[in-house]
């Protein structure tokens, strides 16, 4: 049995970048802060192979304003969830696919592609999920700036009013 604190301690010892970036939220929950892609890829193999976090329950996509966030929920045998977070800028939302090591992430990564517009490198070709065929490109519904009211289901087009577009542009 590893306690949550022991896991954090071990990780922080091994990776200096993880220092003060992990905390125990409550029992069975370890949450990390957002890491960059390089940091993330450095930490992950160790977690998987050495720390027993070889099951991935899920990856949650989030909209972090300028960036896209990806929260990987990794589980070990004791049922401890480690939420490892990764961040990529919206202008270049590239992450690498983990579906090779964690086959359970394949559909979730497809979802990141469809709903958030993430570019998942190394994801095997396959049907788009879960948006229907003929969904217009460049529309990522779960990004905050996308407003469902402007989407016309009959023509499958996204028509924001002009001034609204400007407003959004102004915000940015």
């Amino acid at each position: 049995m590893q306690t949550e604190e022991a896991i954090i301690h071990k990780l922080a010892e091994k990776f200096s970048i993880l220092k003060d970036k992990l905390y125990v939220q409550r029992s069975k929950r370890i949450i990390s802060e957002f890491l960059t892609r390089e940091e993330f890829e450095q930490v992950l193999p160790y977690l998987r192979d050495k720390m027993g976090f070889y099951r991935a329950s899920h990856v949650v996509g989030t909209d972090e304003g300028e960036d896209l966030g990806f929260i990987y929920l990794l589980t070990n045998d004791e049922g401890i969830i480690l939420a490892l977070k990764e961040k990529a800028p919206k202008s270049d939302p590239k992450i690498s696919s983990l579906s090779g090591d964690y086959p359970s992430l394949e559909f979730h990564e497809r979802e990141l592609v469809s709903l958030f517009g993430a570019e998942v490198e190394g994801l095997p070709a396959g049907p788009s999920y879960p948006l229907p065929d003929g969904w217009p490109e460049g529309n990522y519904p779960l990004r905050k700036e996308w407003n469902p009211e402007y989407f016309d289901q009959n023509t499958m087009t996204y028509n924001p009013p002009i001034d609204d577009k400007e407003k959004e542009g102004g915000k940015k």
Partner: peptide
């Protein structure tokens, strides 16, 4: 086998 799902997606999270 190709598993095709997603026919029921109606945008609940949004």
């Amino acid at each position: 086998v190709v598993v095709g799902i997603g026919y029921n997606h109606r945008g609940l999270e949004k």
